[in-house]
Structure formats: structure tokens, C-alpha cells
Design a protein around this nucleic acid. Structure first.
Length: 564
RNA sequence: UGGGGCGUGGUGCAAUGGCAGCACACCGGACUUUGAAUCCGUGGAUCUUGGUUCGACUCCGAGCGCCCCAGCCA
């Protein structure tokens, strides 16, 4: 165990450091507590990384522990998926545990509380329990079964476990205080009866299942967790968490510490809402690149490193600005992935909206190759060869028949540089019957080979290109934010806030030939355009790429402000 | 209405009684064979109000605002 002070100074680290200093604990152990009932999203990334980093920074370990106490919601499918996603995030755990593996011990502990007369079997119906709990202003009413004898409670609990009673007929409740200001302390339910469906791991062995409050802290204690980190919504469960531990006379009581959970602008995070997006077909599925799920973001081209960076940059606190957490600008996330991809992704030339350019004075049938840096910011990255010929494509965006002020790109009579190739000058424009520009005629200056000008003359613009006869076709999917409202979670109808243009599929793109062998997951920067990732649906016959994020685009901003 | 929590530029995080700083965003400039990256710079914040103090974002009192809680969900 190390005593070194970690770099991070968030309030959780401070609390842990203090616990170590004053001897409350002599080591640190945390846990990842997912319920296997859905896919992980960016909100889980924050929680997971806080657990992981806290353990790691103090030389401790963590367990992955599935909170599988509700057979109605949980499935094995998610157990696999969650481990896969957590691994991808780079998290390493000591052991994989399931709350359900410890139902026997938990039951013994419940018996212990019954024997102490701190828990009782209640025969009230669910409706009665609800009514008698009272309200925020009215104290609850004690159950008529609250003062049964210990012997009777023991017998009834045993019979609940043995399956002698139907669902909903009895519950085991902690005996605390029906008038408590904190509703969680008004005799909280510990066990409910559930005969169906079978549990994903224990099958039909059990027909009583523990509630979260009864299971969580006790599991922490059983496994030697020192710090049980969770989101702020659990803050008013902490008195109960501690009550159970005290009544059970646990020696090294774990400590629960809460932090503000993550909300992202233009994003929904609640499982219910995400599920609705999937089930009602607003997105392709949990892996849709527009989804804030780990799988979606991964497919979109986000890297694990950029997610770590994001969580570090946004920090840990208890500040609350929206639904039990902070509202982080999605632009920070985008900045993180740009930073990472800028350093590590090879550059490519790709034309998303092709406009044909014929270089009139370039010899018919001639081809030459340019040797181009894979990543100018990284000398180690090497070079590649890119072919050039008389007919090329440029992006339609890079040509204007009438150039607005400060437009540095191609327009009649103007000269620009083709990235890493030649200077070209627009001589003429060819239109079809509808007046649509179908072709641009240019001349080139052979002396500017490679893109330099021996005579020292300057051109303002450099544009990207792909040789028409060498380029390969590709489909490119452009993603935008899924919602138009920066806080769709707070909106009455988040479906109404969906951005109808969140996906734009471009089917006529042409990319440089070196992309021919690109594999799903490969990431590139298309120069002057953005960062792209080969999609999982891509095949050798049909290249499909996802735009992870665009490059910062100051020209777009100039035009945008001009419109206003 | 009872209980709990939180209030620092637009957003997020620092400053733990001593010059309110950083990141993202925004704006301006330099540089540029990516209108990217990089570099430099501007503007903008301590919820309100009393008090303690030489000195308060920090401590104390009062108020205001926001978030969470009345599942046999987690």
C-alpha cells in the first residue's frame, strides 16, 4: 500500500487521504456496481473512472460487482457487454462478483437482524405499504404487523424463502422509524417475494430478492470495500446504508461518498429514454454512433484515451445544476477527442461532395505520385504515395463562382494550391442545362510541383483533392447532435426535440486509394474536413466511414456570423 | 409543505482567511502547403444581505434560487 499523495485533489481523494491518515482504513478498495440491465453510457464512464482512479491513485484495487438483485430486469447478455466495454475503457479489476452469489450470506444477516428485533415480516399489501408510508409532511403509520414476536418473524421469513407465499403477500422490513423525515428510514423493505422470472444466475433457487438498500452496503462490507462511491441521488440512502452496517455490527464499515453525476448538453442519459430511442427506431440501436453509449461512441470513433481525458478535465464535485448532476458542454468532449486524434491519426485526402476539375494543360494520360507525410505533426509517422492526374475531384465547398470577401478557395481567375501537389488556376466553368456547375477547367503551374512556389508567390488557399481515375468510392456518414435542445432531459417531450438532421449519409464520396485496405475501427483525419473512423459495417467492396467530429472550422464561423 | 444536497465568467473545475486562476466556448491577432494544429492576446464570475476580521469565495447569521427524495427499481 502506498502513502504517496495522488496528483488529483478532488474532494473524494481528499476524503480517502484523510481516512488513510487518521487510520480509519489502511488500504483502499472500491467497486464498479453496474446493474446488468442495459448498455454502459458516458455517465457510467464517469462513475467507473472515479472508482478506478481512486483505487489506482491510492495503490488499491477494485472489483467489478454486478448488482443483480432484480430478476425482472437483468440479463446475462449485459454481463458480457459491460465487461467488454469496461475493458475497452482500460479498466482492470481484481475479481468479477455478483450480488446474487452472496444471497445466502445476506439471508443469514437478515436473520440476525430479525433476531435482534430490528426487522419484521409485514403482511400489508403493496398499496397499504405505500399509503401507510405517509408523505413528506405526514408521518407514516406503523404496520399492524410491526410488533410480531421474533419467533413468528423468523418462521415467516423462513417460509417466505421457502416459497410458501405468493408474490406481494409479505415483505421483510427493517424496523426503524415510521415518522422519520427521510422516507428511506420509514421501515424500508429488505426482501420482496418474486417467483418469476428465473434469475439470470440463480435460476429458481430464490423466490425472495433483496432490495438495493439491503444488498448494496452489505455486499460492500462482505468484500472489504472501503469506499463505496456513488452518485448524489443516493445521498439520502446513506443514513440507511450506515444503519444496516451498525446494526449488523460490521467491523470495518465501508464509507459511502457521493458525487454529482454527469449530464451532457444535447444528450439524454437516462436508461429509459435511451431505450425508447432504440425501441422506437429513432436510432439504429445501442451501437448507433449518435448514442452516448460506450459502444456508440466507440463506433463513432471516440478513443478510450479521449474519454479518460474528458473525465479528468471535467472533474469531480457535488455541484448540482441539472438532474442530480452537472451539465457539461458536449464541446469539451469534442475538444478531447480532437486533441487525441490530432496527435495520433494519419492524414488522408478525401472528397465528400465531388466536383470535377480538369487541368487543361496537364498531359493526357499522365500519372505521377506525390510522397505525402502521414501526419505532419508527427515526424515518426512516415509517408505514403498519392497519385495525381489530369482529372481530379475537389469538394464542391471549395469552389464558388462568385467568391465572397475573404474566400480563399477556388473561383474564376483565382489560383489555389492543391494540397501537396500543384498550384492551379481556374480558367472556366462548365454548367449543365439547369445551370448547375458540373465541371471546373483549370491550368496548373508545373514549377509548383509538391505545392511550393519557386518564385515565392503566395496563394491564400490550399484545398484537398483526389485523382478521379485513382480515387475509390466511399460512403460517409455525417453525424450531428441528436437533439436540438441543449437539455432534452428537462424537456417535456424529448422526442419532439430530436434533430431530424442528426444523420446525413453521403454516398458519392471519393477517397484516396491508400484507404483501400482500411479496416473497421481505423481512424483518420481527412485533411481540412474532420476525423473519420471506418464503420463496423464497412466491407472491402463498400467502404463506409463515420465522421467522429469535424475539424474546427473558422471559415464556417465567418460565414455563419455574416448571415446574421 | 418535511428531509437531504448544491450555489465562483456562457459551461465545468481551482483558489481551504492574503493579488479570484485553469480548461472548453466566445472574440481579436501571429504563423501556416490543413481557414486544422501551434503561439500570443481581449472581454467576462464569487446568489443576496448583514456580521466577524487589517483582510472573506473561504468563517458566522438571515434570506433567495436550483436539484434530489413519498418503487415490493437501482
Amino acid at each position: 500500500m502506498t502513502n504517496e499523495t495522488p496528483e488529483s485533489t478532488d474532494f473524494i481523494h481528499e476524503a480517502v487521504a484523510e481516512d488513510l491518515r487518521n487510520g480509519r482504513f489502511d488500504h483502499v478498495k472500491t467497486r464498479l456496481p453496474p446493474e446488468p440491465n442495459g448498455y454502459l453510457h458516458i455517465g457510467h464512464v464517469k462513475a467507473f473512472l472515479i472508482d478506478y482512479n481512486t483505487a489506482k491513485d491510492f495503490g488499491g484495487v477494485l472489483d467489478l460487482r454486478f448488482d443483480d438483485t432484480n430478476p425482472e430486469k437483468e440479463e446475462t447478455e449485459f454481463v458480457e457487454a459491460i465487461q467488454e466495454d469496461a475493458h475497452w475503457l482500460g479498466i482492470e479489476w481484481e475479481q468479477v462478483l455478483f450480488a446474487s452469489d452472496f444471497f445466502d450470506l445476506l439471508y443469514e444477516w437478515a436473520v440476525k437482524l430479525v433476531k435482534k428485533d430490528k426487522a419484521y415480516v409485514d403482511d400489508q399489501s403493496p398499496e397499504e405499504v405505500k399509503t401507510n408510508r405517509g408523505s413528506w409532511t405526514e408521518p407514516g403509520v406503523e404496520s399492524p404487523w410491526r410488533n410480531r414476536s421474533v419467533e413468528e418473524n423468523l418462521d415467516l421469513l423462513e417460509r417466505m424463502k421457502n416459497g410458501e407465499f405468493p408474490d406481494g403477500s409479505h415483505v421483510l422490513r427493517a424496523k426503524i422509524d415510521m415518522a422519520h423525515g427521510n422516507m428511506n428510514m420509514r421501515d424500508p423493505i429488505m426482501y420482496r417475494i418474486l417467483h418469476e422470472p428465473p434469475h439470470h444466475r440463480t435460476g429458481s433457487k430464490w423466490c425472495i430478492y433483496p432490495m438495493y438498500d439491503w444488498a448494496h452496503g452489505q455486499n460492500d462490507a462482505m468484500h472489504g470495500v472501503t469506499h463505496s462511491l456513488c452518485s448524489i441521488e443516493y445521498e439520502h440512502h446513506r443514513p440507511l446504508y450506515e444503519w444496516f452496517l451498525n446494526e449488523l455490527e460490521i467491523e470495518n464499515k465501508p464509507r459511502q461518498i457521493e458525487f454529482a453525476r454527469l449530464n451532457l448538453t444535447y444528450t439524454v442519459m437516462s436508461k429509459r429514454k435511451l431505450r425508447r430511442l432504440v425501441e422506437e427506431g429513432y436510432v439504429e440501436g445501442w451501437e448507433d454512433p449518435r448514442m452516448p453509449t460506450i459502444r456508440g461512441m466507440r463506433r463513432r470513433g471516440y478513443t478510450s484515451e479521449s474519454l479518460h481525458d474528458f473525465i479528468n478535465r471535467t472533474g469531480v464535485s457535488k455541484t448540482i445544476s441539472a438532474s442530480a448532476g452537472v451539465m457539461i458542454d458536449v464541446a469539451i468532449l469534442e475538444a478531447c477527442v480532437r486533441d487525441d486524434l490530432n496527435k495520433h491519426s494519419p492524414r488522408k485526402l478525401a472528397v465528400l461532395d465531388p466536383l470535377k476539375v480538369v487541368i487543361e494543360n496537364y498531359p493526357e494520360g499522365q500519372t505521377e505520385e506525390f510522397e505525402i507525410d502521414n501526419n505532419p505533426t508527427d515526424p515518426e509517422s512516415g509517408t505514403r504515395k498519392v497519385p495525381f492526374s489530369k482529372v481530379i475531384y475537389i469538394d464542391r465547398d471549395d469552389f464558388r463562382e462568385e467568391a465572397p470577401p475573404k474566400y480563399h478557395r477556388l473561383s474564376p481567375g483565382k489560383e489555389v494550391r492543391l494540397r501537396n501537389a500543384y498550384f492551379i488556376k481556374c480558367e472556366d466553368v462548365v454548367k449543365d442545362a439547369n445551370g448547375e456547375i458540373v465541371e471546373v477547367r483549370c491550368s496548373y503551374d508545373p514549377a509548383t510541383r509538391g505545392g511550393g512556389a519557386p518564385d515565392g508567390r503566395k496563394v491564400k488557399g490550399t484545398i484537398h483533392w483526389v485523382s478521379a481515375s485513382h480515387g475509390i468510392p466511399a460512403e460517409v456518414r455525417l453525424y450531428d447532435r441528436l437533439f436540438n435542445n441543449s437539455d432534452p432531459e428537462a424537456s417535456g417531450d424529448f422526442i419532439a426535440d430530436l434533430n431530424p438532421d442528426s444523420l446525413q449519409v453521403l454516398t458519392n464520396c471519393i477517397v484516396e486509394p491508400s484507404l483501400r485496405d482500411a479496416q473497421p475501427g481505423d481512424k483518420f483525419q481527412f485533411e481540412r474536413v474532420g476525423y473519420f473512423c471506418v464503420d463496423t459495417q464497412s466491407t472491402p467492396d463498400k467502404l463506409v466511414l463515420n465522421r467522429t467530429v469535424s475539424l474546427r472550422d473558422t471559415w464556417a464561423k465567418i460565414e455563419e456570423t455574416r448571415e446574421k
